[in-house]
């Protein structure tokens, strides 16, 4: 029992990272309709930026730098790579190849620059908290807090600001939104920036959580992120938050009960099952589902 409780605790930590990444992924996918397979590599890149910054600045600055890098990089990649391809008429499977190539280029550029070894962000130490059999370290509290704060910000943005309204409108029907006078191009830029910022923060959080990261860390995390986004219904941030909790807890419990080897398998199985049985996601009734089946 204690084992399972501890696993649930770790699951919540994993879920915070997954929520950061999953909400970022789904926001951008919902608004722009581009399945961004370079997301994982961008996370790794942000972790490396945080690593470089942390050499000469406190960790908080490094985390912020990771988020800022994610935002700037995502906007630039969209502006100068993805958007031009879409305007040129690259079709759906062409875009998958483009984003996957971009991911490979980013990942192996990092490997070329930093080498294929492991890196660690500085340990902030801090007290270890005990909740029964579950011990939670300082960085993990930080990750949890980061996740909660970011989710609250996303909630406020989407519900209580005009920009959030415009984003939701663009995600639901971009043509209609444009004809209602919403500057959808600017909304798309903002969506990439917010998604990129969340992506960067998730990358840094992941690097803190796994303690030693390498050029493949973010890429390996991509499938659970997609599982979260698809489980929650593509383009639905609240669904992604719920999905993050499900995938995070389920994979940690499976790791504790069955075998750590199959930790990722849970996310794979959830993703495949959802795509085959209910591709519109669990919260599809809440809003008009995006077209998933052809």
């Amino acid at each position: 029992m204690g084992l399972i409780l501890a696993a649930v605790g770790f699951g919540v930590i994993t879920a915070s990272i997954l929520a950061l990444a999953g909400v970022g992924f789904t926001l951008q996918f919902g608004v722009t309709n581009v399945l961004n397979l370079a997301f994982g590599s961008t996370m790794t890149a942000a972790a490396f930026v945080a690593y470089v910054v942390s050499q000469s600045a406190p960790l908080v600055v490094a985390v912020a730098a990771g988020g800022a890098f994610g935002a700037v990089f995502s906007v630039l990649v969209n502006r100068f790579v993805f958007m031009p391809f879409i305007h040129r008429g690259t079709r759906l499977f062409g875009m998958i190849i483009v984003t996957l190539s971009m991911g490979l280029v980013v990942q192996y550029s990092l490997q070329a620059i930093f080498g294929a070894s492991f890196f660690s962000l500085p340990d902030i130490g801090g007290p270890t908290f005990h909740l029964g059999s579950f011990a939670i370290t300082g960085p993990q509290v930080g990750i949890l807090g980061l996740g909660l704060v970011a989710m609250a910000c996303v909630h406020v943005l989407l519900r209580y600001t005009t920009l959030g309204k415009a984003m939701r409108a663009t995600a639901t029907n971009s043509d209609l939104a444009r004809s209602c006078g919403i500057a959808t191009d600017r909304v798309i830029d903002v969506a990439w920036a917010i998604s990129g910022c969340l992506c960067g923060l998730a990358g840094v959080a992941l690097a803190l959580d796994v303690t030693a990261f390498t050029d493949t860390t973010g890429g390996d995390f991509l499938i659970p992120i997609i599982a979260v986004a698809v489980l929650g219904g593509v383009g639905q941030p609240y669904g992604a938050m719920l999905g993050a909790l499900v995938v995070g807890v389920a994979s940690e419990v499976a790791a504790a009960v069955i075998s750590p080897d199959y930790k990722d398998a849970v996310a794979f199985v959830i993703l495949i099952l959802v795509l085959l049985v209910r591709p519109q996601g669990i919260l599809a009734e809440v809003s008009g589902a995006k077209e998933v089946a052809s």
């Binding site: 399945l35 079709r91 759906l92 499977f93 875009m95 998958i96 997609i226 698809v230 993703l271 495949i272 795509l275 085959l276 591709p279 077209e291 998933v292 089946a293 052809s294």
Partner: peptide, 9 residues
């Protein structure tokens, strides 16, 4: 499924 979802599967 849409082509990109199929690729993901």
């Amino acid at each position: 499924l849409r082509a990109d979802y199929e690729a993901m599967v």
